[in-house]
Structure formats: C-alpha cells, structure tokens
Design a protein around this nucleic acid. Structure first.
Lengths: 214, 214, 214, 214
DNA sequence: GATGAATGAGTCTTCATTCAT
DNA sequence: CATGAATGAAGACTCATTCAT
C-alpha cells in the first residue's frame, strides 16, 4: 500500500469548506451593499435591504461587520484604491521619460477624468461624507498620499530632465491633483455632456502644463 | 395715477405691525437655523432646536417655511451669494486694466481662499449635499454662473489687452474657478496650517497664470 | 361699563387647557407603565406597549420622558416614597411616648410587613435592579435615609424614657430596618400563607424587642 | 450472574476518553460562564462569550446545556451550596455545647457576613432573579431548607441546655437567617466600609442574642 | 460530538411634520 | 397666526438558539 489515508487535503481542493461559504457570504454582502450604496446612496440604504439583497438575514450582516459604516468604509476603500491605482500607473516616470510630456500629461488628465466614471454613486458618497466623517477623510487622505508623492516625484524628474519644474513640489502635487480631481468630479458625477468634458480635459491639460512644463 | 390701493389705512402708527413682527420672526428663524447648521451640521440639527433657539414654537416654523430643507436653501443661497459677490468684485476688468496682472491674479486667488473662512460649516453642507440634492446643486450653479461669466469676460479682456488668452474661454472659466474653489475648500474647511495655505495660494497663482497670462 | 373683557381666567376655571391635556397624558403614561411593570416586570414591558395602553403614539412617550428607565424611576420613587411615609408615621416618638412599647413595636413591624402588599410587582423590580442599577440603589437609599434616621431617633427616645437603648444607634437603625424589610419582602412578595406571616411578625417583634427594649 | 455487560472492553488505555474530554469541556464551560457572570452579570454575558472563553464553538454549549439559564442554575446551585456548607458547620450543636453562646453566635454571624464575599457577582444575580425566576427561587429555597432546620435544631438544643429558647422555632429559624442574610448582602455586595460591617456584625449579634439567648 | 454560520423576532429611540386649540 | 402635543413610520443593532457540514 502506498500509504496514508488520502484525507483532508484531497489535492489542492478547497480546504475548510466553511471558510469558503463564509467568504461567499461576505462577498455577497459587500456586493449587495456596494450596489445599493451606488444606486441609492448611503443614508438611503438600510441594513435590512443589504441583507435581503445578499440573500441573508439581518443578523448575518453583523457577523461580518461591526456596523453599517464599516461596510461603507471597506467598499469606499476598495473603490478609491482601485481608482488610485489607475492614476498611479500614469504617473510612473518611465512612462514620461522618452515621451512627449504634453502627450503624457494629457493622457494623465484624461485618466483622471475617466476614472470618475467608475462607481460614481460611491464617489458621490465620498464627497458627501468627506467633511463630516473623519474616517472617510482619513481613508481618502491615506489613499491620496501616494498619489501626491508620485506627482511630486514626477515633477522632480521633469525638472531633472530639463523639461519643467516648480517652486514648491509638495504644494504643486496637492494643487494639481486636487484641482483635476474636483473638476473631473463635478463634470463626471454631475451630468456633463461629452463636449464639455473634452474641452475641460484640454483646458486642464493646458493649465497643468503651464505650471509644470517648460 | 394717484396711487396705491389704500388698503386699511392706519392712522399714524406703524403700518402693518404684524408684518413687522412677521419679518422679525422669519429673521430669527433664519438666524437660529443658520447658527445651528453652522455649528452642528444640517442632519444634526432638528426643527425643534431651530424653533427653540428662535424663541418660537415648532409649528410656527412651518408657517414660514414649507419644510426644513427650505430654510437651508435660503441660508445657503444667502451665504454663497455673499461669497460670490466678494469674488465678483475682484473679477471686474477695471481692477485689472492698469495693474500688474500677476498681482491682480494673486489677489483674486487669495480672495477665493479666504472667503472659505466665511461660515465654513455651511460651506461643508454645500459639498455634502451637492451631489445628492438637486436643489442645492442648481442653486449653487445659478450663483456660479455669473462668476464663470466674469472669469470668461476677464480672460477676453486680457487677450484684448495683449497680456494673455486661452483657447476656450468658457471651459477655462469653469476649470479655473472649480479648481481654485475646491483646493481652497479642502484646505480651509479641513484644518490646514497657515504655511500650507500660503504655499497653495502661490502655487495656484502660478498655475492659473500659466493658463491665462502671457 | 364695568370693564375689561372677561377673558383668560374666567373664574378659577382651568387655565391653559393645553397644560391640562399634557398633565392628563403624562398621568396616563405613568399609569400605563405602572400597571405594565407591575404585571409583567420591567424588561418584559416594551415602550410600544406602554404607549398603546396609554392610548398614545410611541413618540409621545419620549416627549415626556427621556427614556424607558426614567419612567421606571419616577414610578419606583413614588411607590417607595409612599410606603416610606406609612412607615415614618409609625416611627414618630409621640406614638410611642405613652404607649406600651411592645405594642407599638408590633404595630410598626406589622406595618412594615403589610406595606409590602402595595404594588408588589414594582417592589420586586426594586430588588431585581438594586445591585445592578446605581440609580435605583441611590433612589432607594435616599428614601431609606429618613427612615434610618427616624429609627435612630426613636431608639434614642426610648433610651431617654428608660425603656430601652442600644450600643450603636446608627447601626441598629440600619440592621433593624434592613432585617424587617427583607423578611417581609420574602414572605409577602413570595407567596407565603397567612400563618407564616403572622408567626414572622411575632418573631420579628420579639427579635427587635430583644435589641431595643429593656 | 457472571457479571456486567462487557460493553466495548477497552484494552488497557484510559476508559472512554470521550467522557474524560466531555467532562473537561463541561467544566471549562461552567468555569467560563461562572467567571463571566461574576464579572459582568447574567444578562450582560452572551453565550458566544461563554463559548469563546471556554475555547469551544457556540453550538457546543448546547450539547452540554439545554439553554443559557441551565448554566446559570448549575453555577448558582454550586455557589450557594458551598456557602451554605460554611454556615452549616457553624450551626452544629457540638460547637455550641461547651462554648460561650454569645461567642458562638458572634462567630456564626460573622461567618454569615463574610461568606457574602464569595462570588459577590453571582450572589447579586441570585437576588436579581429571585422574584422573577421561579427556578432560582426554588433552588435557593431548597438549599436554605437545611439551614433553617439546623437553626431550629440549634435553638431547640439551646433551650434544652437552658441557655435560651423561642416561642416558634420554625419562624425563628426563618427570621434569623433571612435577616442576617440580607443585612449582610446589602453591606457586602454594596460597598460598605469595614467599620460599618463591624458595627453591623455586633448589632446583629445583639439582636439575635436578644431573641434566642437567655 | 463539534463547529460556527445563519437566523429573525424583538427593542428602543428619533424627528419631520400635522393639527386641534 | 402661534402653539406645542401628538404622530408613527423608520432604522440600526442584539443575541439565544438552530442546523448543515
């Protein structure tokens, strides 16, 4: 006999099926809440609705999250982090090194605008709670920090390459990102038409270029 | 024509004392609500508190306003309009004609930043409700419209005077104002220190100058 | 003309009818809650039931009391104070001066026992919450204080009159009242039969007599 | 008959290891619950906490006890019985036969007071539930019965020895024990200082001595 | 037997708005 | 017009107990 009773890990199969179920429930909960927050908003969504949509009982929600706000925080974090990643990509100096800076900048701005189309309802919630909910503000600031750093870093590289530069890189990073972020939000989360958006991308590119290029 | 319909011609005494009282009550209500919204926030203020602070009964509130939101709308409108006026002043072409454009610009930006210190609690409410309450959005947009126009007009003047110009004046007006407004809000309504603010004013001035000057 | 329009106080009639209504509602609330607490117990009574029994909406309850516990505190206070008054009467030295001390004592003990028949359900709630709810404990202690004082005072009088006396009047007051109170509670709030109660009154009288008389 | 049904004769090793484990789990559960009830109180302790503290799953609890209350009953029984044993010792006539009755009595009272220091949290639960939970009341009464009997028996011995006696030994037993028990509880489970306790012990001794001695 | 995910009835409390006086 | 008592729908959260794995 070759041996041991082939028990427990049958071959990479899912161990501890309970955990699998648990993960599935959690996911269902996050998805249900995400969809509802997106559709209706945070205050307008009840914990009972989240449970129903996830196909579980109310009590189950509280087995996974301490309270309603914790669900929001998780979803907000994921959403915002996902957006931030897309932006961070466009900020890598390598992408700019041998390219036309104006083109790269426009590309960056364009990305900053289009990412606002991701989960707009949740992004609205971010702004809605930004000044009244410290947790939301802190979470957003934590996610923005690396972006500010990347912008600053990029500006320093541009200076080094002789294609631009600013007086105060920290301040520039903050002002640039904040400006674009909000211009994009107002246009994309409001209901702006395509022409307006196009024009804004162009104008914004000009504006930022005026600050950091040449 | 000899005149107005002489309704209830009171002899001597103050005309329509009721209206005077009424106006006083209304004012008390608006002031009470304004102070409470500023201190606590909109959702955190109850109509009962507003009435108590104004020294009237709850029911009386509904004799002057259809609902709680209407009080907010009035206050928000007044506050935002007041701020807009301060900004509009700085946008008058006369002020720019014979002055150093860079200086005038810096002055404008500075004004845009410092006006955020007016009734910050109410301004927070604006952003909190901007995307979730169409009435708030529309009211704000109505008030911003003349500003956009003034910015556009100014840019056109600058072009005429040969000190600047942009490709798309409408878009520029929107982008400029929106950018500065939000950068200022985040800094002033959050708790930024003086140095950060100073730096941001400088950087922002550089940025806008890059777009519209020279 | 004799004068002023006979308005407002028509002649001792009820002024401010609103306050009358308010008082009525409050009373209905207290009575409803009292009856329910008595019948079912505190935890077993819901605020909705109280409102329904009082014939008002749930919200009305909170117009008169900050929370459910406040209703209990008021009722408990009233009930216990009422009982305390009955006991205090029997403790007045005048009642003892020219009477047979043994008889007066028996009378006192008897009163302490029979008062336990008043609102037994509420008295149960007192003991149920005594050690877990500081407010209840404090309220009870506040009401007991004058009783302790009266007992002490009585003992001092007895000593003066040469019919008794104890080593430590404060301690005696506490021990006497506490002992009788609990013996009575256990018998009357449990379901003791008449004979047991009679015997206990007699025995308790002997016991206290042994301590404070002759 | 040759004997016992040789069910599953285990060779050598420890018999029914399951039962050993089972007993260990049960004990862990009782200890966990006991500690938590003592610390927080009954209502404030959840079954989930008990399970966690015992190191088992929630469901497991229900394999050993039909419900939460059953755990309490077992713990209460053990605790109260343990206290009762300490008291019963001091009530054995042998201890009193050749000793100074006053001394023995004081010793007994002292014991009745100090035993209230054992598991005070659980004793609080007894009083909290005494009138609302028939099972608790019955359990306590069952445990008190032998004490009442022992007190009665002691009183009869004292009478026989010519050092005391009462009219109604049954009633006396109940009154004595109940009085001391509650005086002690209020002092020891509340937060009385040492001096108060000492005085109460002395006074109580005087009081009981007045009833049963001489 | 053990596990722990799931259940869901049940609670208190809030507050914008109405309306009889 | 003012008053303020009354309304009642709504919502977040708890926890003893069950049961599929």
């Amino acid at each position: 006999m070759t041996g041991a009773p082939a028990r427990k890990p049958p071959r990479g199969g899912p161990r501890r099926p309970q955990q699998a179920r648990s993960r599935r429930t959690r996911k269902a909960l996050v998805e249900a809440a995400g969809a509802l927050f997106e559709e209706r908003g945070y205050d307008e969504t009840t914990t009972a609705e989240i449970a129903r949509r996830a196909g579980v009982a109310v009590g189950t929600v509280y087995g996974y999250f301490p309270d309603k706000r914790a669900i929001l925080m998780e979803i907000l974090h994921d959403t915002v982090a996902q957006i931030a990643d897309l932006v961070l990509e466009r900020l890598e100096p390598e992408r700019w090194r041998d390219a036309d800076p104006r083109r790269s900048l426009r590309d960056l701005i364009h990305t900053l605008f289009t990412t606002r189309r991701l989960r707009p309802g949740l992004q609205r919630i971010v702004w809605e709670r930004f000044f009244k909910d410290d947790q939301v503000r802190e979470a957003l600031e934590a996610i923005e920090a690396p972006i500010f750093l990347a912008v600053k870093n990029l500006v320093l590289h541009l200076e080094e390459w002789g294609v631009g530069g600013v007086r105060d890189p920290d301040s520039a990073a903050f002002v640039i990102h904040t400006s674009v972020e909000w211009t994009a939000s107002r246009l994309m989360l409001g209901g702006a038409d395509e022409a307006e958006v196009e024009a804004a991308v162009e104008t914004t590119t000009d504006m930022i270029a005026g600050l950091i290029l040449a």
